[in-house]
Amino acid sequence: MAASSSSGSSFTSSSLGRPPTYSRSYVSPVDSTWTQTSEISTISATSTSESVVPAASLRPLDLGPPGYTATITLFQDTPDERTVYLGPWEVVGSEQRRIRWQCSYQSELLEHFLPSDIPSDVHPHTLHSRHRQFNDPPDMERFLSFNEPHRIRYTSGEGICIHDQYIQVRYEFTTVEASIQFQGDLRRKDLVDFYDVDVVWSNLQSRTDSFGKVKGIGAIQRLKLWRDRYTTFHSLSVLANKTDNQYREYDIHHFDGELRNRDDRAKTLRLNVHGRRGSVPDETSSRRTFRIRQRVRSAGQASAASPELGPSYATTTLDIRYLSIQFTHKRDYKRFIETWAFAHSSDREFNGVPFPPNHFELPSPEIQPGRDADTG
């Protein structure tokens, strides 16, 4: 049975019956008796004293309907460009996962098809706060994008397909909280915290190249801490923009709890991998991980192949000895140290089963065009 998750947020439909249409008829900048045929004479008469902007270039200002959650732009940089106002969402499907957005005008429907059926393989991207220096760093979470084009299908209330193409998807959310909830539903992992980092490197990808230029795995990126909704395990993800431009995700239980090589002044620290050249293996964590995998298999959830768990839960070993991080802000550096201690302790001490054996969830009702979100 297909699992789904939804935003569950309240949504107020717009009083407008349809998306605003932009009229190209001429309107007098001076009086109502001005007509289209008098356009040239009017502009000529006033151009000697002051410049006049042709009224045909002006459009009604569309502030959007009340209660929308996010926006997306379709047909960008074309004459048909339009902004779509998005309300509640839900993530549906197991073999072809997609996000179903209820739109604001006439209950239009926008579907965002995801490139992978495994939730943990999808990574919404957020820029480092340096890209908007005059905004608060958390505000960057309102602007989400993806590294590769995704298919977007936009259907009117009458069932007419307006858009069905692969595009570079960019969402702009109205609040940081809505974006965090959306990212969690998308990956089935709660976004615990995020940090701006100058550079992330390992023993395989050194911090600088032979010319002294900063390289590493990724530089000027946003590091994110996640908690899996099924296993409750924590993980770190970062975009490897200095190597293959793909996301790297590391499970916290692969690392020692103690943070080595800390430099508070430089805001750097090192995470050592268990049992790799001097790291002390955590036998308790290994036994706990083995017990949970055994119980998951007995409940009919194969860890290596289950899309519910994703590849990060399968039996994997890291090919690096350590992961080093240099933070941009002092507050992020201190907050990471505090959160790391709690997350690592939680992963190490957990000895139960996330859900009872043979547990399953019923899917939430899909959002249908022309019907409210709460009535399904």
Rank of each mutant, 00 (worst) to 15 (best):
T83V: 13
Y85L: 02
Y85P: 00
L86H: 00
L86C: 01
L86P: 00
W89G: 00
W89R: 02
E90T: 13
V91H: 02
V92W: 00
E95L: 13
E95P: 10
R97C: 02
R98P: 03
R98S: 08
I99A: 02
I99H: 01
R100Q: 10
R100S: 09
Q102R: 11
S104E: 01
Y105G: 03
Y105H: 08
S107Y: 15
E108P: 02
H112D: 03
F113I: 06
S116T: 10
D117S: 12
S120M: 07
D121E: 14
V122N: 01
H125E: 11
H125I: 11
L127C: 09
L127R: 13
H128S: 09
H128M: 06
S129C: 09
S129E: 02
H131F: 12
R132E: 15
R132C: 12
Q133T: 14
Q133H: 12
F134E: 15
F134T: 15
N135D: 15
N135F: 14
N135S: 15
P137S: 06
P137W: 06
P137A: 07
P138D: 10
P138I: 10
D139K: 10
E141Q: 11
E141Y: 09
E141C: 10
R142L: 04
L144C: 06
L144A: 04
L144M: 11
S145P: 08
F146I: 06
F146D: 01
P149L: 08
R153T: 07
Y154K: 02
S156T: 06
G157I: 03
G159S: 06
C161L: 10
H163F: 14
H163K: 08
D164A: 11
D164H: 12
Y166V: 13
Y166L: 14
Y166A: 14
I167P: 01
I167H: 02
V169A: 05
R170H: 14
Y171T: 04
E172C: 11
E172K: 14
F173M: 05
F173V: 04
T175H: 07
T175Y: 05
V176Q: 06
V176R: 02
V176F: 05
E177I: 09
A178T: 10
A178P: 06
A178C: 12
I180V: 12
Q181V: 13
Q181D: 12
G184P: 04
G184R: 01
D185Y: 02
D185W: 01
R188F: 06
K189M: 13
D190Q: 15
D190R: 11
L191V: 07
V192M: 07
V192E: 04
D193R: 08
D193F: 08
Y195A: 01
D198A: 09
V200H: 01
V200M: 05
W201M: 02
S202K: 00
L204S: 13
Q205W: 11
Q205S: 11
S206F: 10
S206M: 13
T208M: 12
T208K: 12
D209H: 03
D209Y: 05
S210C: 07
S210Y: 08
F211L: 13
G212M: 04
G212Q: 02
K213H: 12
K213P: 03
G216L: 03
I217Q: 00
A219S: 14
A219F: 05
A219P: 05
A219R: 05
I220F: 11
Q221I: 15
R222T: 09
R222K: 15
R222G: 03
L223V: 05
W226H: 04
R227K: 15
D228M: 06
